[in-house]
Each structure stands twice: as structure tokens, then as C-alpha cells.
Design a protein around this nucleic acid. Structure first.
Length: 875
RNA sequence: GGGCGGUUAGCUCAGCGGGAGAGCGCUCGGCUUACACCCGAGAGGUCGGCGGUUCGAUCCCGUCACCGCCCACCA
């Protein structure tokens, strides 16, 4: 019998068990299994990152699901890995270089990419090390990186297939450009935020001298690229001007036609729009229809280029002021509204204002891909938890615009396209070509790389070996559930469904999508460095243990909802772990080497039947709620069972029985409950449960492969009823002592009048004495006349009196009794009123009516007894 | 401009058609040999406002008021 320390000390235990688990191969999944697979692919964290609370939550939930599935007998596979995170990683390494005073352009592409790889080799392992500290049971042999050889081949295969199928194309468009990252972004990588800007109304003079037309803009600097003016075709105000031209004040040679287009909103501003086709997507489309010129006035860093005349070289904000001043000098500015609040796009990586910018980019045609993915969500092949997110997914899918996938970066999957300088051919192939069909070897590869999310979208199948038809893919695809936060439903989840269905037999990549929220601080505020409220999960692990952190997060996880984390919460979870530790310690110390079993012939006392019934209830609840991803409900049930029922009541009830030594039944019940509790908690608290399991069953194997508990048919309404009354009596007596200032340690004799309940109570009298810390309890038919001592009554009408020979403070006693009488009076009236309502009695279900009648009877009986006590007090 | 979510105990949040819950905090009392990372007993909510449906509403419907998030090509 090993001695357990008085408090749970996680550090050494966690390290020891994780090594043991990994060594034993317990995390590995076997594709040749005959078991049913249960598969999760981890949303790959960015290699640049350190594990934050969001990961800790996301991973804890997945590990809990995987560990439970493993115990349920599934072939459980959890695939880990990380994402190369194009922009984020490139930015990090560029920053490093800048510290050394190096510009990536000076270094050159090849050397730069090599530097990033070096960086990845050195720091890329940080997250996976931290994942081990959290206890994550992923199959490390299947760890993948989005730029691994195999995954790169998947990326290339997808690109080429889509290119051949006409879904990938190159085009000249106004895209979202980040002038700081100097790359294009897709629409969903742009975050719209309200900005207090200005709305400038200015005039374009007609070239025929017959007047002018006024336009409004929030981006006056872009007028350098204006090539037309648009009005609504039905707008009478401008009907006569359509067809005429205006003159550009800074470029007198440039004539801008006034064109009618449906896209113009006549209600806004002056009803006339300046046409800037190179810097506004709508203007671009109108320009396409009207055939007007497109003049790009910005460089890739958003400085005015040589199309900007005397403004050349200014950055866009400088140009904004300068152009306004220049127009004002010409007397063309009519109005400046400031501040004018409007939404402006920002780069999701660096926060810089996006510049809509005309450039040549690669796109994926989304409509054909979206159709099946829409159907799959509608018919439930993909089910969202909670379901409300399906609506958002569908809305987005149904309004998709083509996806800009080229990025002007160096870190990422190079676009597998070559251009032949000789014949102009565009070649997209799996293997690097050496010569063109025309025979020329003068081939140039497209310099751009693909959007990071292009490879992420393939994750559920690329990690399993696709495009090869591997055993893993056969066995483990489609995966079971995708666990992720709501913020990447569009960016990632939707695209996985689309590409998965396209490439892998029309199969959805996962049947369930479990959406959780974002982790906020203790006050519900977003965690951010600037607020200084960021909590480092690893710090929490070191301070309180991995199990405590995991439990604290899962304990507050409601599908789809944000949750809060604070050190206090982790501390609370640590306390729970410690509670479990000590309850187990008590059981183990009491039993020594004995492990009494709960055989079918065991003579169970009512408290035994009660706790086993409550255990069954807990088992049912935990399973049901976990099936629905309701971690919070499941863990609250477990927490309450362990702490409030098992520890506060059953362990206390068992103590005298164990002390007497005669009863192995109580020991058997304790072992049984502990056994089940450890199993039920293991998915969320793997370390402490494994450690205690090994103490409980030194010869058994790991709890990881112990069977997940099923209800055992031990629900017992009778014992629950009896114990409920018993608990009421104990609580009432404890309170009675406090109210009458009987020191807790002082034992007093008590009389109990239990009425019909007396027979049930008889066997529990010693326990009443023990738990309420009394001298003795005597069952009586009637408490008799007052004067013997202070009295109480339970909600069920059991009366009790301390035999102290009198009441110290009759006035206070009277007051207490009167308060109790008033409460009961109100209850009686409430129930009477309800039952007097004919339609209630007629229409409510019989069970509800009966329950109400029973309540009324009980309240009346209790009221009568309180009245009796009051009379006795005066008598 | 659309859509979604929220408004429940001092704080943070569960619950969601039949008598209001948890954690933390608070008050009072305790070294009761598993645990002071603890034990015992308490206090504390007109479940945002107003209508409606129902025998019955914190829970369903409508509406208003705040708060938050997402989407969006009114320059």
C-alpha cells in the first residue's frame, strides 16, 4: 500500500504518465482494425504560434471526445499537425531579419524560404511540446505539416485538377490588397471596421462648358484614377448629361464619359458616382460594362505611382490631403463632411487598411463547388452543433464570390503554373516541366504562392494520405467530427466541405461540426495583449495541473457560446481534482489491499442503493450530454455527484461502517463508485484519473482502455425518496443546533417524530446521530408538550426536538416558528388556488395535478404540526 | 442595410412550458483523524420592459429598449 500525498501534486505524475502513454503506443490507431473508427483531425495551429487559451479549449474538447471514444471501443484516431500560415509566418521571420538589419529582398527568395524553414525547425515544435503538456492523446506518428511533401502533392493535385476542370482561372480584377504585407487577400481575410473618415463632394466640369456634375467620395485621392462618371439610368436629374464628358482637373487630356448604370444608388450623395475602376470593385464592373479605361494610381505599397502626376510618391493618406487641397484651390470642392463614419476593410493579419487594387490574380470558381456543400448541410450529412451555425454557413455559401487564391508571398505552396516565353502557353502540371509543348525550354514559374487556406481546406484528407488511396484514407475518412471555433466556419470549415466532396467520392469530410466559442477573460472581455488580460495556459498547467486547466475550460463549454477563463476558475478546478484525490485517498486508506466487489448477493443498505442510483443517474447524464457535446452539463453533473453526493454524504455515511470493519459492502460500493467516477472523468482529467486508477487497481492496465461506463439498472426511486427525507432531517438538525447556539462539538439528545416515515428512518438513526453530531436519537410518536427543548420540522413534515430541558429564548423560537408557519401558509394557499382552478384540474396532465395535490397535503400536514408547536410553546 | 446571439443571485454564466441553478464572492460557525485546495449552516433573483398564446410562461409568439457578434460593392 503506497502512501498518497495529502494534496494532489500534478507535475511529476503528468510527466510520468504522458511518457508512459506515448511509449505504450496507446495513442496510435490501426487502419486494419475491425473496430468502428472515430476520427478527429486537429485544426492545425500556426507553426508560428504558442499555445493560447483558444487552443487549450479546442484541444481539451477534442481530447475528451477521442479518449471517450477510445474507451467506448472505437478505433480512435486524432491526427495532429500544424499549418505553415503563409502571411503570419513570413511576417514573423521578416521581423527577425529586420532585427539583423536584413531585408528579405536583399536576401533573395530562395535564401529567405530557407530561413523560414530553419525557423520552423527551431521553433515549430513549441506547440506540439505544449500539447503534450496538456495531455493530448493524438497519434504523433501521423503528425503532419501543411508543407510536408505529401500534403504539398495534395495541394498541387487539387490545383491542377481544378485548373483542368476550369474551376481555377487567372483574371484581372480589383482585389483586396494589403500594402503592408504586399499581397492580395481573399474577401474573408478582410475585416470591416468603422472608421471616422470624410465624405468629400466635388465637381467635375463638363468638357462642353455647359456646367458640371458633382460626385461624393470618402477616398478623394482615388480621383486621380477616375475615368468616368456614373449615374442611374432612371435618374431624371442627370438624363440630359448621359453621353457627355467631363474633364479631369489634373489631367486635362483625360475626358471622363458620363455613363448610366443600374448599379448606382440615386439616393446616395449626389446620385452621381466617380468611376475609379482600378480601386473599387463596383466601379470596375461598371467600367467593364461601359468600356472605360482603368487607371491604377498606386504602387504595391499604396504610394501614388507615375499615373498620379504631381502627386507621385505620396502615400495614400498624404495624397488624400494633397488632392483635397489642390481641388479646393481650383474651387471644385463643394462640401467636406467630417467625421464621416463608414466601414473600411483591414488586413486580418496586420490590421492595415486594405487597398482595393487592380491586379492579375488566380481565382477559384465557387458556385459549382458550393452546390453539393449546400445540399449536404441541408440534408444533414453535415450537422452543425449547435444548429444555428448551419444558417450562417448556408447564407455564406449561397452568396459566394470567387476565391482569390494567389498571394504575393514567398512562404507557401508555389503556384504550379509555368508560362512559356516562346508561345505564351500556360502550363499547370503535377511535376515541374522542363519544356513546353512548343519545344521551348524558356519556362517561367508563376512567382506567387497559394493562400494558406488552400492547403488547410484539404486537411481532413491530405493528412490521411490523399491523393494516394492509402489504408488510412480507406479506414479513417470521412472523419467523425470537426471541432472548431465559430470564427473560422467560412475561412476553413466551409471550404473543407467543398473540396472534400469534390475530391473524395462526394463524401463530406466530417459528419458533425461541433462549434465552440472563443475564450474570454474572467469578466467576459476578449483576451488581448493590450488589455493585459491574456492568460497563458501553460502557466496554468504548471501552477494547477493540466487536468485542472482542462476541466476548468470544459466545465463552462456550452456549444456555440463563448466562455470565460480566469485563474480563479482554474484554481476551482484544481480544488475539485484535489477533492477527488482525497476521496480516493480515503477509500484506499480505508481498504488497504482489499478491493471488495459489489457482487449480486451484496446486502445493500438504503444509502448504498441511494448512491448507486445517483451514480447511474450521473452515468446517464454524462453520456447523454457528451453525445450532444454539452460539456458543461456533463461536467456539472459529475462535479455534483462527486462532491455533493459521494463526498459530502456517502463517504460520511460509510465512515462509521468502515470503522467498525464488519461491512465490506460500504467498501464495495465505494470502490464501485470511485471506479466509475474515474472512468467518467478520464476524458477530461486524464492524468489524475490514470494515477488513481493505478492505485485502485495496481495490476490492471491503463484507464485509457478501460470500458466507458454504461447505466447499470440501479435507479431506485424508493431509496432516493428515503435519503432525501433523511438528508432533510440531518440538515434541519444541524441548523437547529446552530440556531440555538449549541456548539458544533457538543452532543445533545434528540427526539424525532417521523410519522409514516418512521419505519424507513429506523435503520438510519445511527447515521442521523453521526452526521448531525448528536448524542442520541429517539423515535417518538409525538414530541409531546413543549418545554422539553427547541424544535424543528423538515419540508416533508418530520418533527424533531433537542431535549435540552427547555428553550433558552422562547421569543426567538416563536419568531422562527411563525416565519415557518407563514411560509407554509403561503404554500398551502398557492396550491389550493391552483387546484381550485377547474381548467387546471381538467386540462393539466394527471401527473401534474396529482403532484400538486400531494404538495398540498404535505404542506397542510406540516402547517398543522407547526401550529401545534406554536401552541405548545405558549402552553 | 441585413442576419444571429444575449439581457437570470454581488460577479461570471448554465437552464428553457409545470414550485429558480452552478462556480466564485459574501455572512455565521468549525482543526468532525480523506481533503482548510476543507467541513457545516445561511443570506441573496418581480429570470430587461410591455403585450399575447396557454389551465399554467424565466422558458413559446409579437414588440420595444439596451449590449455583443457576423455578413454587406451606398461610393
Amino acid at each position: 500500500m503506497t502512501e498518497l500525498p495529502k494534496a494532489y501534486q500534478p507535475e511529476e505524475i503528468e510527466k510520468r504518465w504522458y511518457e508512459e502513454w506515448e511509449r505504450s503506443g496507446a495513442f496510435r490507431a490501426d487502419p486494419s482494425t475491425s473496430k468502428k473508427p472515430y476520427v478527429i483531425v486537429l485544426p492545425p495551429p500556426n507553426v508560428t504560434g504558442a499555445l493560447h487559451m483558444g487552443h487549450a479549449l479546442n484541444h481539451s474538447l477534442q481530447d475528451a471526445l477521442i479518449r471517450r471514444a477510445r474507451m467506448q471501443g472505437y478505433e480512435a484516431l486524432w491526427v495532429p499537425g500544424s499549418d505553415h500560415a503563409g502571411i503570419a509566418t513570413q511576417n514573423v521571420v521578416e521581423r527577425e531579419l529586420r532585427k539583423e538589419g536584413i531585408d528579405r529582398h536583399a536576401l533573395g527568395r530562395e535564401a529567405f524560404v530557407e530561413r523560414v524553414w530553419e525557423w520552423k525547425r527551431e521553433y515549430g515544435g513549441r506547440i506540439t511540446r505544449q500539447m503534450r503538456e496538456l495531455g493530448e492523446s493524438c497519434d504523433w506518428e501521423r503528425e503532419r505539416f501543411t508543407m510536408d511533401e505529401g500534403l504539398s502533392r495534395a495541394v498541387r493535385t487539387v490545383f491542377v485538377r481544378w485548373f483542368e476542370d476550369g474551376l481555377v482561372y487567372r483574371g484581372l480584377r480589383v482585389i483586396n490588397w494589403c500594402p503592408r504585407c504586399t499581397t492580395a487577400l481573399s474577401d474573408i481575410e478582410v475585416e470591416h471596421e468603422d472608421v471616422a473618415g470624410e465624405l468629400v463632394t466635388f465637381r467635375y466640369e463638363l468638357t462642353d462648358g455647359s456646367g458640371s456634375i458633382s460626385v461624393a467620395t470618402t477616398r478623394i485621392e482615388t480621383m486621380l484614377g477616375d475615368t468616368g462618371v456614373f449615374v442611374h439610368p432612371d435618374d431624371g436629374r442627370y438624363a440630359s448629361l448621359v453621353g457627355k464628358t467631363v474633364r479631369h482637373p489634373f489631367f486635362p487630356d483625360r475626358e471622363l464619359p458620363i455613363v448610366a448604370d443600374e448599379a448606382v444608388d440615386p439616393e446616395f450623395g449626389t446620385g452621381a458616382v466617380k468611376g475609379t475602376p482600378a480601386h473599387d470593385p463596383v466601379d470596375f464592373e461598371m467600367s467593364e460594362r461601359a468600356g472605360t479605361d482603368k487607371v491604377n494610381v498606386f504602387t504595391e505599397t499604396a504610394h501614388v505611382n507615375d499615373n498620379g502626376g504631381r502627386f507621385e510618391g505620396m502615400d495614400r493618406y498624404e495624397a488624400r490631403g494633397a488632392v483635397l487641397a489642390a481641388l479646393d484651390e481650383l474651387g471644385l470642392v463643394e462640401k467636406v463632411e467630417r467625421p464621416y463614419v463608414h466601414a473600411v476593410g483591414h488586413c486580418y493579419r496586420c490590421g492595415t487598411e486594405i487597398e482595393p487594387w487592380l491586379s492579375e490574380q488566380w481565382f477559384v470558381k465557387m458556385r459549382p463547388l458550393a452546390e453539393p456543400a449546400i445540399e449536404a448541410a441541408k440534408d444533414g450529412r453535415v450537422t452543425f452543433h449547435p444548429p444555428r451555425f448551419a444558417k450562417a454557413y448556408l447564407h455564406w455559401m449561397e452568396n459566394l464570390r470567387d476565391w482569390c487564391i494567389s498571394r504575393q508571398l514567398w512562404w507557401g505552396h508555389r503556384i504550379p503554373v509555368w508560362y512559356c516565353d516562346a508561345c505564351g502557353e500556360t502550363i499547370a502540371v503535377l511535376e515541374d516541366p522542363t519544356e513546353c509543348r512548343c519545344g521551348s525550354t524558356d519556362l517561367r514559374q508563376d512567382p506567387d504562392v497559394l493562400d494558406t487556406w488552400f492547403s488547410s481546406q484539404l486537411w481532413p484528407f491530405s493528412t490521411l494520405g490523399w491523393p494516394d488511396d492509402t489504408p488510412d484514407l480507406k479506414t479513417f475518412y470521412p472523419t467523425t467530427v470537426m471541432v472548431t471555433a465559430y470564427d473560422i466556419i467560412y475561412l476553413w470549415v466551409a471550404r473543407m466541405v467543398m473540396s472534400g466532396m469534390y475530391f473524395v467520392d462526394g463524401l463530406v469530410p466530417f459528419g458533425d461540426v461541433f462549434i465552440h466559442g472563443v475564450v474570454r477573460d474572467g469578466e467576459g472581455k476578449k483576451m488581448s495583449k493590450s488589455l493585459g488580460n491574456v492568460i497563458d495556459p501553460i502557466e496554468m498547467v504548471h501552477r494547477y495541473g493540466a487536468d485542472a486547466l482542462r476541466f476548468s475550460l470544459a466545465f463552462v463549454t456550452v456549444p456555440g457560446n463563448d466562455s470565460n477563463s480566469s485563474e480563479e476558475r482554474v484554481e476551482g478546478a484544481r480544488n475539485f481534482a484535489n477533492k477527488l484525490w482525497n476521496a480516493s485517498r480515503f477509500v484506499l486508506m480505508s481498504l488497504g489491499d482489499e478491493r471488495p466487489e459489489l457482487g449480486p448477493g451484496a446486502e445493500l443498505l438504503v444509502e448504498d442503493r441511494w448512491i448507486l442510483s445517483r451514480l447511474d443517474h450521473a452515468i446517464e447524464t454524462v453520456s447523454r450530454e457528451l453525445d450532444a457535446y454539452n460539456f458543461s452539463e456533463a461536467l456539472h453533473a459529475l462535479h455534483a455527484f462527486v462532491w455533493s453526493e459521494l463526498c459530502d454524504w456517502y463517504v460520511e455515511l460509510a465512515k462509521p461502517r468502515l470503522r467498525e470493519g464488519g461491512s465490506s459492502t460500504a467498501g464495495g460500493v465505494l470502490v464501485h463508485c470511485l471506479d466509475r467516477v474515474l472512468r467518467l472523468l478520464h476524458p477530461v482529467m486524464p492524468f489524475i484519473t490514470e494515477e488513481l486508477w493505478s492505485k485502485l487497481y495496481p495490476a490492471a492496465g491503463s484507464i485509457m482502455t478501460a470500458q466507458w461506463p454504461e447505466p447499470e439498472g440501479r435507479r431506485d426511486a424508493g431509496s432516493e425518496e428515503t435519503m432525501g427525507r433523511f438528508q432533510d432531517l440531518v440538515v434541519a438538525l444541524r441548523r437547529l443546533k446552530i440556531e440555538h447556539e449549541v456548539p458544533q462539538g457538543q452532543r445533545v439528545p434528540v427526539s424525532v417524530a417521523a410519522g409514516d416515515f418512521a419505519p424507513d428512518l429506523e435503520s438510519l438513526l445511527d447515521q442521523v446521530v453521526s452526521l448531525a453530531r448528536l448524542e442520541s436519537v429517539e423515535l417518538v410518536d409525538d414530541l409531546g408538550p413543549a418545554g422539553s427543548g427547541p424544535r424543528t420540522i423538515t419540508p416533508g413534515g418530520i418533527e424533531a426536538a433537542m431535549r435540552l430541558g427547555g428553550v433558552a429564548d422562547p421569543a426567538a423560537e416563536r419568531e422562527r416558528l411563525e416565519r415557518k408557519r407563514d411560509d407554509l401558509q403561503r404554500e398551502v394557499e398557492r396550491a389550493e388556488g391552483k387546484l381550485a382552478n377547474e381548467s387546471f384540474v381538467a386540462k393539466a396532465p394527471a401527473a401534474v395535478v396529482d403532484k400538486e395535490r400531494a404538495k398540498l397535503d404535505e404542506a397542510r400536514a406540516a402547517l398543522a404540526k407547526v401550529d401545534g408547536q406554536l401552541t405548545a410553546l405558549s402552553g
